[in-house]
Structures are given as C-alpha cells and as structure tokens.
Design a protein around this nucleic acid. Sequence first.
DNA 1: ATTTACATGTAAGGGGTTACATGATTGA
DNA 2: TCAATCATGTAACCCCTTACATGTAAAT
Lengths: 183, 183
Amino acid sequence: MSKNDTVKYAILGLLNMEPMSGYDIKKHIETGIKHFWNMSYGSIYPRLNKLTQEQLVTKKIINQEGKPNRIIYSITEKGEDELYGWQTQGTEIAQKYDTLLLKIFISQNLSRDEQIALINDYREKIEEKFLFFKKSESDFLKKSYESEKRFLYYITLRSGILNYEAKLKWMDETLELLEKYDK
Amino acid sequence: MSKNDTVKYAILGLLNMEPMSGYDIKKHIETGIKHFWNMSYGSIYPRLNKLTQEQLVTKKIINQEGKPNRIIYSITEKGEDELYGWQTQGTEIAQKYDTLLLKIFISQNLSRDEQIALINDYREKIEEKFLFFKKSESDFLKKSYESEKRFLYYITLRSGILNYEAKLKWMDETLELLEKYDK
DNA sequence: ATTTACATGTAAGGGGTTACATGATTGA
DNA sequence: TCAATCATGTAACCCCTTACATGTAAAT
C-alpha cells in the first residue's frame, strides 16, 4: 500500500458525487476534468474490484441486453470516512497542484470552511515558491543577459513565475467565490 | 525503443550545452530547471552508459583522490544530429508543455527562427484548447451555478483557463524576446 | 560529532498506460 | 459499410523513483 494513493481517492471521490460504473467514471473524466486529471481503464477497473474487496464501495449489477451488464458502484460509509480523511488532510503530505484541484472538484461533501482551509494551506506553499522565483529573477536582472545560455535560463525562469502567478490567481479568485456563495 | 524518449534527449541536450558528469547533470537540474524537469540518478547513470554504447556520447575519466573518479561525458556528432532532429521536430508528436520548455532551455544550438517556429507551432495547440475552455465557460455562465456540483465544475474550469492563459502569455513574451535579441 | 557534498552505480518495486479480447448496436 | 459507442476486464510492458551500497573530505 502506498502513502499517497491518488487513484483510490479519485475514484472514491467521484463515486461520492454519485454512484456510477467504471465506464461512467472514465466518461466523467473525459468530459470534465481531464485537463488536470486522467486515469485509464487499466487503472480504473482493477481498482474498483480492489475497493469492493476492501468494502469501501459496493456494487450493483444492472442487466442489459445486447450490451455487457453495467456495474454500478456506490461508496460505503467506511469509504466515506477514508475519503474524508484524505480530503481534509492538508499539505503535510506533499501534494501536487493537480491533486488540490481534484480535492476541490470532489469537495461537495466538505463545508465552505474546510474547502477554504485546503486552499489557504496550499496557497502558502505556492507563494513561497513564487517569491523565491521572483527573487531569482531580480537577482538575474541585475546583470544583463550576457550569454545565450543565461538568456534561455531567464526565459524558462519566467515560465515558472507566470505559472505560479496563475496558480495564485486561481486560488485567490476561488477563495473569493467560496466566501461569496454560501452553501 | 520508445518513440518519445525524453530522458535521452534531455541528457543529450544538457551535454550539448557543455560536457559534464552525471552528477553535474543532476546539479544543473536541481539549481535551474527542476520546476519543469526532473530526473533521478537512477535514470541518469544507466542512460549515460547506454548513450555511450550507442556512440551518442563519449566519456573521459578524470582521476581524483579521496573521491570517486569523475566521468565527463561529451556529445558526439552523431549525438548532435539525433538531438537536432528531436529539437526541431514540431508538434506532430504530442508533446507536453514541459517538453517545450526543455527544448527551449537547451536550444542554444538553434537559430532564432527555429526557436520561434517551435513556440509558434505549440502556441496554436494551446490557443485551440484555450478557446475551447473559454467557450465552455461562456456556455456555463448562461445559466447560474444551480448546484454545488456545477459550481465546483466551474471553479476547476477556471483553473484550466488561467493555466492556458499563463502559457499563452509566456509564449507571447518569449516570442517577443526572441525577436528582440538577435543571436 | 555529525551532516552535507562529492561521485557512481544497481536492484527492487511501484505505478501506470497501451493493447488486446469480446460483441452488439447505433450513427454517419 | 465503417466507425464509434457501450461496457468490462486482463496482461504485457515500460519507465521511473526509492533505497541501498561505498567511502572520503569538508563544513558546521
């Protein structure tokens, strides 16, 4: 078992939004969140069986004619509990930005305060990195480009700055929306 | 052999900037580009040996006392040719943004026109995605949030928009810099 | 006194994707 | 008529990271 099993929680989180089949899960990903999250059938189906064994989900088979039967999975109470633990665990455990996005996407079961805490927590980490990059930039700009090598370094440094800037901007506007629209 | 062996070209690209050891390669990554590119020793050292066998690099051993010997790798002409082919191959082969950043970072051997072509090529792909997301957003905004689920979908959609916006911004400012500063 | 830097390398393990298998139905 | 959609599932494979092995010297 790994410390950071995102596939597990991604599936649990989607099933927590509504019961569905493995096929549906893939559908949901394709149409809505594939810009930050993706999983193949080769990850989804075996994991769904494992989650059933672990009693974190239950399955109900819907018979169909001419097509394979649909297997609808629902999250159990035990599953909800484990999911909740993961959702509300902050950044002690190193997380990617994409994982934060996933957590937010599946956060309908959380309170506004919990959602806000998640983002605030992550925001600090990003701001730190952002400031480090800004510092690097101003250090760099004390001298001019000098060489092509340094010029190219500067260009990619800029990409980091713009990237962190966009993340901060998203977090700020999201915090505002979360505070504005009560549940 | 895989179609898209980025580790290979990342190493070749760094060696093309200057001859160095595996340890140096890791150093360079850590201090300069780890925000978009990373490789562990477990990737670097075995690959360096493979590249030597393929005659894409040559090695020179520097004897040291009290420390293990340094092995300095240099790219060969054959290596340069293969690297150049990869560097200038456009987006026919699906590439990540991070791969574009790597290509730009190691592009000192390319002409300004070649560098500009690389970015212009990629820019089109990103703009397409960006416009698709903007369209999704305006479709969404025709109705109001309605449900928490839709609200959360909207929020993550915004993250996509801001992310693509940042990438476009970087490409535009980079194109400007590349045009402004002749080699 | 202990950690960090130097320096190379391997082995095990983990985690995922791609491709394949199967097969009817619907849409272009 | 050909591709795509529906629907589940497995097996092979790929590729990478983590941890370990080894050992000196400098820095704190």
